[in-house]
Design a protein around this nucleic acid. Structure first.
Length: 203
DNA sequence: CCCTGATTCGC
DNA sequence: GCGAATCAGG
């Protein structure tokens, strides 16, 4: 595949958003993360500041381990306009984090609008008719959860949210996810239930 | 081991 | 220009 305008555009957009090279490569398809990084450099947009959040990046002045013929042309000291506010008015009665309804797969649906307040919480189809043992194992597993933050999640970490998203008491499971699944074994057990296993609702 | 970006260099 | 291989690191 080649770098069509469209693909370059996607690359630029995602890179600006702070997506990793591998994520971009997967999105584009037909290229490796190396290709993406190479292109990024050729496009001259290596310094990813502004929109996204910074990774663990140091501003080491290009450590030249070996004898480098070319000298550093421009020692440009540039200020870093850090901007990371986290305004978060805590709602009085936040909805409990309970996914259990994974319908999409492409974009991670981890961002769920926080329900401000009010009596009628939307019907949460979870934590209700789940095999007791599954629930038990979940409880158990969550003790050992790696407590990853959103940005620490990868393709193979369990993305099950634990705790209250409206507080600091919130993290993601982070245990090894089942191949091809978004959750670890325990959480898959409560997330993906055969329709047959839930046959009540007699009302 | 998983992952990240950076750099080099043959093509 | 491209990107695999490699490097350097978390």
């Amino acid at each position: 595949m080649s770098w069509t305008d469209e693909r370059v555009e996607t690359l630029k957009k995602m890179w600006a958003e702070g997506q990793s090279a591998s994520q971009i490569a997967k999105e584009l398809g037909g290229v490796t993360r190396n290709a993406v990084i190479g292109k990024v450099h050729r496009l001259g947009l290596s310094n990813r500041v502004g929109g996204g959040k910074d990774e663990g990046e140091d501003e080491a002045p290009a450590v030249a381990a070996k004898a480098e013929p070319a000298a550093r042309p421009a020692p440009e000291p540039r200020p870093e306009p850090m901007a990371a506010a986290a305004p978060r008015p805590a709602p009085e009665r936040p909805a409990a984090a309970a996914p259990a309804a994974p319908s999409n797969v492409t974009p991670l649906p981890i961002r769920k609008a926080i329900i401000p307040a009010g009596q009628p919480l939307p019907p949460q189809p979870s934590a209700n008719e789940i095999s007791p043992e599954a629930l038990a194992s979940v409880r158990e597993v969550e003790k050992h959860a790696k407590r990853l933050t959103l940005m620490e999640l990868t393709e193979r970490t369990c993305k099950w949210p634990i705790g209250d998203p409206a507080t600091d008491d919130f993290w993601f499971c982070g245990l090894p996810s089942l191949p091809g699944k978004p959750y670890c074994e325990a959480h898959v057990g409560v997330a993906f239930q055969p329709m047959s296993a839930r046959r009540d609702r007699r009302r």
